[in-house]
Amino acid sequence: MAFTHTSPKKNEGVVATATTPSFFFVLRRVSAWSGLIPFFLFLILFLFIPAVSVFSQALHDADGSFGFSAMREAISGQNLDAFIFSLKFSAGSAFVGVIFGGLLAYAAATATRPHWLRNIVSSFSGVAANMGGLPLAFAFLSLLGRQGLGTKILNAFGWDLYAGDFKLGEVSGLITVYSYFNIPLMVLVTLPAIDGLKTSWREACANLGGSAWTYWRRVGLPILAPSLLGGFLLLFANSFSAYATARQLTDNSKIVPLRISFFLGGDISIGEDAVGYSLAAWMIILMAFSMAAYWLLRRRAERWSNS
């Protein structure tokens, strides 16, 4: 195929061997990067400057000098409770998403009948994975709110949902609601990986005397592991940073994004202001770690899906 000749690796080779490192070569390289100046300028203005300002505010002490007191305060007392609460429901809903999303992807990928099933599942996932925000919160309020229809149905079966400590704004409720976009997102992430599992591996395993259990424990799951783990991190980050849905479900200021907006909106003294920015700064740090790990795991996982 002629197409493969334009792959980036080949081009690089041509450029590197055809030119010697001369003045013109340097000029050429500089002018090549100059085409990205508008894009870089845009990112600096509208992404980096806001992000850096968050950190610069977070790293101010009450007297205006550089210091870590606000950053420390953002992870102590009530703020620490908020972080623990957010970590709990984000990890919980990521876990639920990985299990059920993985199962659903497997079910859709291996089902032979009806033939449109797989398409439906993957198209629906494409829509539902992006369905955060207000409509999702409204939908669950009408299903599992105090007057919700689901609550009534469960009541009819003798299960009073609100007898315990269930609330849409508490851990169990948030896990349920966030599963609505986490499960489909997981389906999108794992479908290619499951397609990468070759039937020949399964047959080889069976020929060597392995059972289905052996296959999954020794072959299938180890190969899927980077995708599953990467999916977990992606879902975790996705849940942790969600604002719109949580905002409609509850006023619970134990949810970190809601807490940040609470600090941003209120008329609070300068000292406490910095705590809000520090919360945002910690959040960026947490997101950076999970997305970096996700990025690495995705590279690892692509090894099997590219062949």
Binding site: L47, I49, P50, A51, V52, S53, V54, S56, Q57, S241, Y243, P257, I260, S261, L264, G276, Y277, A280, A281, M283, I284, M287, A288, M291
Partner: peptide, 13 residues
């Protein structure tokens, strides 16, 4: 990495 809520914190600054 910089979710909307963190971005808007920066905008407020």
């Amino acid at each position: 990495v910089i979710p909307a809520i963190a971005l808007v914190a920066g905008i407020v600054v």
